[in-house]
Design a protein around this nucleic acid. Sequence first.
RNA 1: GGUCCUUUGGCCGAGUGGCUAGGCACAGCUCUGCAAAAGCUUCUACAGCGGUUCGAAUCCGCUAGGGACCUCCA
Length: 495
Amino acid sequence: MALSIYNSYTREKEVFTPLTAGHVGMYVCGPTVSGESHLGHARPYITFDVLYRYLTHLGYKVRYVRNITDAGHFEEEGREAEDKVSKKALLEKLEPMELVQKYTNRFHWAMKQFNCIEPTIEPTATGHILEQQEMIKKIMEAGYAYEVNGSVYFDVTKYAASHDYGKLSGRVMEDLLETTRELEGQEEKRNKADFALWKAAAPEHIMRWPSPWGVGFPGWHIECSAMATKYLGAQFDIHGGGMDLQFPHHESEIAQSTICNHSAPVRYWMHNNMITVNGRKMGKSYNNFITLTEMFNGNNPSLQQAFSPMTIRFFILQSHYRSTLDFSNEALIGSERAFKRLWEAYQHLMAMDAGGSHTATDAALDTRVQHWINEFETFINDDLGTPRIIANMFELVPVINSLRDKRIPFHSISAETLRSMQEHFRVYLEDIMGLREENQQNNESFSKVMELLLTLRKEARAKKDFVTSDTIRDELAKAGIEVKDEKDGSVSWTM
RNA sequence: GGUCCUUUGGCCGAGUGGCUAGGCACAGCUCUGCAAAAGCUUCUACAGCGGUUCGAAUCCGCUAGGGACCUCCA
């Protein structure tokens, strides 16, 4: 069974075959570090983290490149085009690179919270100015770019005459040329559809570099093309990013790279859908975003409570990456409880002794269990069907809990099936979906204290001193520690 | 205005031409000193109207609602 992924370029699910056997080149558009990442940003990074994990699991050697955009792009509102990074820097009285570093650090911190594996290469736009300039030169030499007043523009009309500009984003050239919107700097362009490869910097513009065309800064799209080419080659396997980047960003990347490298750069384009709030895209322009820091600490008026990184990761994996996902407190609370239940069942499953070789006394149940776990692979191969894997896991939760509570006999399913279930849960839950234990703050001395308290409570209960026993349990609950009396007389606790 | 997508039970969300996804919430029961957890049960929906079909929530058309992109945007 092979992995199929939905290719935005062909609009079809395709069986994935890498360009070079055993190796995968994957590029994902990274963050613009002019501000804090918000919940919407978490989706692509978690989605493609799962893809990265799965490709690795399949045995591929994956080069995963995810850039940091620290060079800032124009903000074409009002009269003066301003660099987004330098504008914010002035407000905060920071050096541009200081600002960029701050948000880069925060981004890395958030990714770590989400248990996202770091990319194999994480190039910065500012670190690749030369590569970008070289690429622009090549495009000019090929005759597909022109210089005006120290800025260089890509000639989309000329490109479209012989190439399929607009195919990725479903755009029609005529429409692009007829757009009525008046944007700053348009008069320099030969056609409205043209886009900047290099922009001349105004004197007050802080981020600036010398170039053959004067002092300026690179256009937005060229950085990804330059860095992807440098680290993955003229053609590579997978390019991922948010749907909102399809146009103009990815469309332009295709055009630039095609001219420069004489081949279409990407074989599989993948786009994740947006996270919405009340049905509307979460985004800076709508001012309806919640930063990741706020999500984690609950410090935002839209939040009823804080939500842990694993709750958010689970929440995202519960929907398919190409569907919109609507944010709401109820939905997140639902995910929080669901994840807790699933994770506890997983812990119980792993604690079971799967040694031995007994056969199943309940063949029908054994068959169903096998069916559910075997489907994990079918689902992940079908364009990363994480929601369906999770649904099957929940089918198995009552089975696991019942085995544990001896509500159904331990030998109902065979030892082999039990081992297989343990293995499947571990691989899919931890290795592929990247979920992990929420709290790992249980250090040794703390455990000793807990042990002591629970012993005291046990003694109180034995004497039917429920006032004392309940006080211990209630006060622990207030501290966020839940005590549970299990069926077999033991006591467990979770934070 | 153009291009495209979407509309599933109280909420979130899978999915397929015929076989109750799943989660959360709610209610009932079992277990239990109580509680929590767990288990069992109940709740059976696919915007509306037509059409294709033996059969459609799933395909087609129309209508209505919502949204994305066309400008920085994950």
